[in-house]
C-alpha cells in the first residue's frame, strides 16, 4: 500500500484521485508508525519550502521520511515535495531540506542572460526531455506535462536528473537516485504522460514488493 504523507500542505485530493484512477491502493496519514509500514511513500506539496520544512520538522515527519528512505522502499516527492528532497532552498530565506539528494533550490532569475524578462512562475505545459533510461520512464515517449513553480533544483548530480525541461534554465523535471524519486511538475494534472509516470512509479513499488 502506498502512503501519502498528509502534513497539511499538499493537494492530497488530486494525488489520491489519480491513484484511484490507476486502481492503486493508498492511504493518507500523518502518523509516523502508519507511514513507516507503507510499501512506498508519496510526499506531495504546494506552498513554500520554509513552511513545509517547519511542519515536517516540528511533527517529526522529516525524520520519518529520512528513515523511510533508508529502508530502500520507494519514495516520490511531487512539486514542492520533490524540492524538499534536496539540500536546501533559498525560498523565504535559506532553509535546510531533507538532504536525500544533492542540489539546491533556487528561484528562476526572471531575466535571461541577454537581459530579456520572462514570467515567473513557470506555469503551464512544457515538454519533457528524457536524459537517462530509468524504470520510471519505461515504455514512455517524451511529451508535455503541467508545471507550476517559481523555484527549480540546481544540481551537479547529472545522473540523478532523469528528465528535464527548459524554461530559460534547465529544469530538472524527473529526478531519481536509488529508491528516491521526484517530479517537479504535477503528474496527477499532466494528462496521459503524467498518469503513465505515476503508473510506472506504482509498478516499481509492486515489483519491489514481489522480489521481497
Amino acid at each position: 500500500m502506498i502512503g501519502i504523507i498528509d502534513y497539511g500542505m499538499g493537494n492530497l485530493f488530486s494525488v489520491s484521485k489519480a491513484l484511484e484512477r490507476l486502481e492503486v491502493p493508498y492511504f493518507l496519514s500523518e502518523k509516523k508508525d502508519e507511514l513507516l509500514k507503507a510499501d512506498a511513500l508519496i510526499l506531495p506539496g504546494v506552498g513554500s519550502f520554509k513552511d513545509a520544512m517547519t511542519i515536517l520538522n516540528s511533527t517529526g515527519l522529516a525524520d520519518l521520511i529520512k528513515e523511510f528512505a533508508d529502508t530502500g522502499k520507494p519514495l516520490l516527492g511531487i512539486c514542492l515535495g520533490m524540492q524538499l528532497l534536496f539540500e536546501d532552498s533559498e525560498e523565504n530565506g535559506m532553509t535546510e531540506g531533507l538532504q536525500l539528494l544533492p542540489g539546491h533550490v533556487r528561484r528562476f532569475p526572471g531575466e535571461t542572460a541577454e537581459g530579456e524578462m520572462y514570467k515567473v512562475p513557470h506555469m503551464g505545459w512544457n515538454r519533457l526531455v528524457f536524459l537517462h533510461s530509468s524504470p520510471i520512464l519505461k515504455g514512455l515517449d517524451e511529451d508535455y506535462v503541467y508545471f507550476v513553480h517559481s523555484y527549480f533544483v540546481d544540481t551537479d548530480d547529472q545522473e540523478a536528473v532523469i528528465s528535464r525541461s527548459l524554461y530559460d534554465v534547465e529544469v530538472p523535471a524527473v529526478v531519481g537516485r536509488g529508491n528516491v524519486f521526484g517530479m517537479q511538475f504535477h503528474p496527477e494534472k499532466s494528462s496521459s504522460l503524467g498518469m503513465a509516470l505515476l503508473r510506472n512509479f506504482t509498478e516499481l513499488v509492486e515489483e519491489r514488493m514481489s522480489v521481497k
Binding site: R21, Y146, V148, E188, K189, G194, M195
Partner: peptide
Amino acid sequence: KAVASELAIP
C-alpha cells in the same frame, strides 16, 4: 469533486 476525480488536467 467529481471533475477532480475524473480529469487529469488543471
